[in-house]
Structures are given as C-alpha cells and as structure tokens.
C-alpha cells in the first residue's frame, strides 16, 4: 500500500505539476489503506509541518532575501564593477567573472535567473578579451551554475536536507551546504577556469 501511495504521489505531481495535490492524494491513499485513521489527520499534518517547518521557512525567507537584492540594483553594479579590477589580465578576468556569478547565484538562489543578469555584460567582455565562443559559453554557463550547490538557500541543498533531516540528525549548513560547496563549487571554479583558458 505504501508503495502504491508513493507511486501515486509522484505520478500525480508529474501530471498536475502540483506538489500539494500529490502529497494530499498520497496521504488519502494511506488513510484508505488503514495506516492511520482519518480523524488523526490533523495530528499527521502537524507532525509533517513541524518536520518541514525549517526548510519551508528558509525557502520563504530566501525569496524575500532575493527580492531585496534585486531591489537594491546592486546586482548590475556588481557585474559592471567587475570591469575595474580586470586590467588586461585574461586569467584574472575569467576568475573574476566566475566569482561574480557565484555571488549573484548565492544572492538570488537560482542559477537559472543569474544568466540574463550576467550575459549582457560578460559576453561582450569575454569577446573583447579574446575568449573563443566555446570559452564564452563556459564562462557564462559556469558562472551562472556556480553557487547553486553549496548555497544555504537553494533548492539543491534544501532538497537533500528535507529528506535527510526528518529525524533531526542532519544539519543543513554543516552536512549539506558545506560538503556540497567544497566538492562541487571548488572544482567548478577550477575546471571552469581551465576550460575557459584552453578552449
């Protein structure tokens, strides 16, 4: 019965695009299967909410954080001020572009939304520095992707914590964020930089 409920919950999510509907039907199926009584549902929801409260509220406040970042207008300023430090050093230029991308993605919590912000400035800049089209793709793509893994407020770390921390033995920052930052962002910077310089 649990297996059926899991498949149904996932399938319905896929079909309707709604996590809420999927979860609801999963719970209903388990209730029909006699796993718990329907009048215990309140109890169940309270437990479920308590379990997910931290993740939920991080997501909510991360959305607020991102909105403040956008409102300040300093995201564009950051991209533009990157010019100043380059000088005419190609290697430094590549590194700074990657790091600027890292900070923007950490700030707005989504690598998908970072691209439109950085592309307008980075593309002409990269071409001016003589990076090939392939290297330009690497620079913009990697700069955007950087900071998705290893961010305290992105789906890619909150998701794993939401599953692993249900018995409160998995610390979001030290067991999800820091390990993924070390193992994914550092290689992305290194290999992204190398690829940009070689291609």
């Amino acid at each position: 019965m649990s297996g059926v409920a899991i498949v149904a919950a996932l399938g319905l999510q896929l079909y309707s695009g709604s996590m809420i509907l999927g979860g609801l039907v999963g719970v209903a199926l388990l209730s029909l299967g006699g796993i718990f009584k329907w009048r215990e549902a309140d109890d169940l929801f309270t437990s479920g909410m308590r379990m997910m409260a931290l993740i939920g509220f991080i997501m909510i406040s991360a959305a607020g954080f991102a909105e403040v970042m956008k409102t300040t207008g300093d995201i564009d300023a950051l991209v533009e001020s990157a010019f100043a430090v380059f000088g005419d050093n190609r290697g430094l230029a590549a590194l700074i572009m990657l790091l600027v991308g890292l900070f923007i993605t950490l700030g707005i919590g989504s690598s998908f939304s970072t691209i439109p912000i950085i592309a307008a400035i980075f593309v002409p800049l990269a071409l001016q520095f003589g990076f090939s089209p392939m290297a330009t793709v690497v620079l913009v793509g990697t700069a955007a992707a950087l900071g998705d893994a290893g961010s305290p407020a992105s789906d890619s770390t909150l998701g794993p914590t939401s599953g692993l921390n249900v018995d409160r033995q998995h610390d979001h920052i030290w067991d999800s964020v820091v390990p993924t930052f070390l193992h994914y962002n550092l290689p992305l910077i290194g290999f992204g930089w190398l690829a940009a310089m070689m291609l």
Binding site: M19, L24, L30, A41, F45, V166
Partner: peptide, 15 residues
Amino acid sequence: VALAYATLGAFAVAI
C-alpha cells in the same frame, strides 16, 4: 512551496 512541503511532510510521516 512551504505549504507543498508541509503536505509532503505529512505524507512522509504517514509512510
């Protein structure tokens, strides 16, 4: 998103 997670949380407890 937060409400969705609460629902899925309830599901996880039921499971």
